[in-house]
Amino acid sequence: MGGKKGSVFFIISMLFVLMCGRAEAAAPDPIPRASGDIYVQDIANVLNPNEEAQLMQLGRTIEDQTSNQIAVLTVSSIGEEAIEDYANRAYREYGLGTKEEDNGVLLIVAMKEKKIRIEVGYGLEGIIPDGRAGRIIDENAVPSLQADQPNIAVMKTYGAIANAVSGEESKKGGTPAQENGSSIPSWLLILIAVAFIILDFMFFGGTLTFFLLSIFSRGGGGPRGGGGGSSGGGGASRGW
C-alpha cells in the first residue's frame, strides 16, 4: 500500500511540475520599460543616434501641435505571442495618447520573428483605419525590411504616420485652425518639417537635422511619457 501511495504521489507531483512549466512557458514576454522620451524605444538597436534624435524631435513636434503621440518600439523577439497581442499590451503599457482622446499610434518591429505592426488608438481610427495602416507598411516598411535595412523602414514608416496624423482632419473636432486668415496652419508646418527630415535623411544622412537639433534641443525639459491612453483600436500587421 505504501508503495502504491508513493507512486500516486510521485505521478501527481510530476503532473504539477509539468503544468507549472507549461504555464511559465506560455507566459508572455514582459514589455520593455520605457526609457527617455516615449517616442522612440529602440530596444533592438535598429537606429543610430542621429536617426533616433530625428524621430524624437518629430514626435515632440507632432505632440506639441496635435496632442497625438507616435511611438516606435523595436525588440529582438516577442516570443510565442502574436504581434497583435504584444502590440496591444505595449500600447496599454506606454499609455499612448491622452486619456480623453486615446490618440496614439505604436509602430512595433520584432526582428527575430520578422513581424511589423502599426497599432492605432481608438481616437485615430478615423485617420488611420486598418486599410491605410496596411498600405503605410507595404509602401514604406516592407521593401526596406526585405533589403535588410530596418532603420530605413522605421524612419520612412514613422514619417508616413506623422504625415497622416498631422493633417487638418486629425485635429480635435475635425476643423482646421485659422487665425486672421494669414498665419500658416500648424499642420502645414508639421508637413514641411516631416518632408525636410525625410529628404535630409535620404540625401545627406540626416546631417542637417542633427545639427539643428543640437542647437535647438538643449533646453528641452524632462523626458516625455505616455499621456494616458488605454487601448489600441485597430491597425495592421505584416511579415517580411
Rank of each mutant, 00 (worst) to 15 (best):
D64R: 12
Q65Y: 15
S67I: 11
N68I: 08
Q69D: 07
V72C: 12
T74I: 01
T74S: 11
S76V: 11
S77E: 06
G79Y: 07
G79L: 01
E80A: 15
E80L: 13
A82K: 15
A82L: 14
I83L: 11
I83P: 06
Y86Q: 10
N88Y: 12
N88G: 09
R89Q: 03
R89V: 04
Y91N: 06
R92A: 15
E93A: 13
G95I: 11
G97P: 03
T98S: 14
T98C: 12
E100G: 13
E100M: 15
D102E: 13
D102A: 10
D102M: 08
G104R: 05
G104N: 05
V105C: 07
L106K: 05
L107H: 10
I108Q: 08
V109T: 11
V109P: 06
M111Q: 15
E113W: 02
E113F: 04
E113D: 04
K114R: 15
I116W: 09
I118G: 04
I118S: 03
V120G: 06
G121V: 13
Y122F: 15
Y122W: 14
G123M: 04
L124D: 09
E125K: 15
E125P: 11
E125G: 15
G126I: 07
G126N: 06
I127A: 09
I127R: 08
I127G: 05
I128Y: 07
P129Q: 08
P129T: 06
P129R: 03
D130E: 12
G131S: 15
G131W: 13
A133E: 07
A133H: 08
A133M: 07
G134H: 09
G134V: 08
R135T: 10
I137F: 07
I137K: 02
D138Q: 10
A141G: 03
A141P: 07
V142L: 06
V142S: 03
P143K: 02
S144L: 04
S144T: 11
S144F: 12
S144E: 13
L145H: 04
L145W: 05
L145C: 00
Q146D: 12
Q146S: 13
Q146R: 14
Q146N: 14
D148V: 09
D148M: 13
D148H: 10
N151W: 01
N151F: 03
I152D: 07
I152E: 07
I152P: 02
V154R: 01
M155R: 09
M155Y: 05
K156R: 07
K156A: 10
T157C: 00
T157R: 00
Y158R: 02
A160C: 03
I161Q: 01
I161R: 01
A162C: 00
A162M: 04
A162N: 02
N163G: 06
N163C: 02
A164H: 03
